[in-house]
């Protein structure tokens, strides 16, 4: 009675295609949103670091709010709340991209901001005393050191959020979880399909870790 029937999944070309598409959609949405969020986060953290009067406080509140609410509530707000309020229609994946970007940016900027604060005062004073401008100091003194020190934290946060991206299937994005639920509804082999999905998520997380490590060794390792 208890038997594994994995063949129901791997014998059907339709299901395999669905899973492959799911992997691609999940992967590309995560990567694109994290890259956009990373650029946003540098901007947000810099504005907070320079203590821009009103904007700095506002951004601090924004980051706290993002970090203390679940991704899924943010996702539903961006997918259903905001379009109803401002009456615009986007495809599902745009909503998911927006929500993931906002979510990632909150976490990344908090990590970067705490990294900025750890840079010793003396370094900035030294840079100022040789006549460098604020932006130059930021780009060549503060940012490289912060990225180097905070890279592990950024990576583990990236993986942590990646593991929760499955919730975007809830708003209808055809990602890996959505593919799994579809196959589950057709074959009714829930146990097998979710084992397959789990293995794929773990595999993707491991490959992300591998590539992030590679980037660290190639780009961020200090050359001395």
């Amino acid at each position: 009675m208890f038997e594994f029937r994995f063949f129901e999944i791997y014998r059907s070309k339709q299901y395999l295609d669905l899973i492959l598409d799911g992997v691609l959609v999940t992967g590309s949405l995560t990567i694109f949103s994290s890259i956009m969020a990373f650029l946003m986060a540098i901007f947000i953290a810099a504005l907070r670091y320079w203590r821009i009067p009103v904007l700095g406080k506002f951004l601090a509140t924004y980051v706290e709010f993002i970090r203390n609410t679940p991704l899924i509530v943010q996702l539903f707000f961006f997918a259903f709340g905001l379009p109803a309020l401002l009456s615009y229609i986007w495809p599902f994946w745009c909503h998911a991209l927006l929500a993931l970007t906002v979510n990632f940016s909150g976490y990344f900027s908090a990590i970067l901001y705490s990294g900025f604060l750890k840079i010793p005062r003396g370094q900035i004073e030294a840079a100022k005393s040789i006549g460098l401008k604020n932006l130059v100091i930021f780009k060549h003194v503060i940012l490289p050191q912060t990225l180097h020190a905070m890279y592990p934290a950024l990576c583990s946060q990236f993986i942590f959020v990646f593991l929760t991206t499955g919730v975007i299937s809830e708003i209808g994005v055809v990602d890996l979880t959505h593919a799994g639920l579809f196959i589950d509804s057709r074959t009714f082999r829930s146990f097998e399909i979710f084992i397959v999905l789990t293995a794929l998520y773990v595999f993707m997380a491991l490959s992300f870790k591998f590539f992030l490590n590679l980037i660290f060794l190639k780009k961020l390792k200090p050359k001395y």
Partner: peptide
Amino acid sequence: SIPLLMVLFL
């Protein structure tokens, strides 16, 4: 490494 969502589904 396993997403919480997958644990819940399993």
